[in-house]
């Protein structure tokens, strides 16, 4: 019964909430708009917006030594998570069967284990830092912790399900994924998408003034 719900109606609901929620959030931002900048610009804001989106992936030289742990742990988690999402064998099969209609080469089992460990280490490091550092402890909200716990559960159940010891583990993994998909559009996890306009707005502003971010 639970398996049927998770593979059926729950999945459909999660998909709809995930995509409609994201679109709603994006439209909400665009609808709000910003007033046109009437000042005479030095440069076009477009290159600034693009460059800000690229440069944002690298810490500013001046503060890099002070944020090294955050950057390394951040990359460990985010890259690891994305690799697992798109190259874990069960995911490749699932995406081909349900979304794209075609598949690509999945990573071998040993690579999955290594990637999962790296991603777990990154996530746990970031979370410990969030809890222990006075700054992140002060500015973290309940939402940040709920998001981290959900992602952790998704990864944990995913690793357990990979062994394919029982169907229940796969169902449980899929259930946590559905929870994450429903939570995603209404949470701080939206940073995964909203960082693009955020960087673009700031990059364009600085770009118009002739300052490289």
């Amino acid at each position: 019964m639970f398996e049927q719900l998770v593979d059926g109606i729950f999945w459909d609901i999660a998909l709809v909430v995930f995509f409609v929620g994201i679109i709603w959030r994006i439209v909400d931002v665009l609808r709000r708009g910003t007033s046109k900048d009437l000042s005479v610009s030095r440069n076009s804001g477009v290159p600034g917006a693009i460059m800000a989106n690229i440069r944002g992936f690298f810490p500013h030289r001046e503060i890099a030594p002070r944020v090294r742990m955050k950057v390394v742990a951040g990359y460990m988690f985010h890259l690891g998570f994305l690799i697992l999402l798109f190259f874990a064998a069960p995911h490749v099969k699932f995406i081909a069967e349900h979304i794209t209609g075609f598949s690509w080469t999945a990573m071998p089992y040993w690579a999955f284990v290594v990637t999962a460990q790296v991603a777990f280490a990154g996530l746990i490091l970031l979370w410990i830092h969030r809890l222990l550092h006075p700054v992140t402890r002060l500015i973290s909200r309940r939402d940040d912790h709920v998001g981290a716990i959900l992602v952790f559960l998704v990864m944990l159940t995913g690793c357990m399900a990979l062994a394919e010891i029982s169907s229940e583990l796969r169902v449980f993994h899929r259930f946590t994924v559905e929870l994450l998909m429903i939570y995603f559009p209404f949470s701080a996890l939206m940073h995964a998408i909203m960082f693009v306009p955020s960087r673009a707005y700031t990059g364009a502003m600085f770009g118009r003034r002739g300052v490289d971010l």
Binding site: R25, P59, R130, V135, T136, M190, M194
Partner: peptide
Amino acid sequence: FSSCTGCGV
């Protein structure tokens, strides 16, 4: 505000 992850950088 939708982008802030509370990273503290």
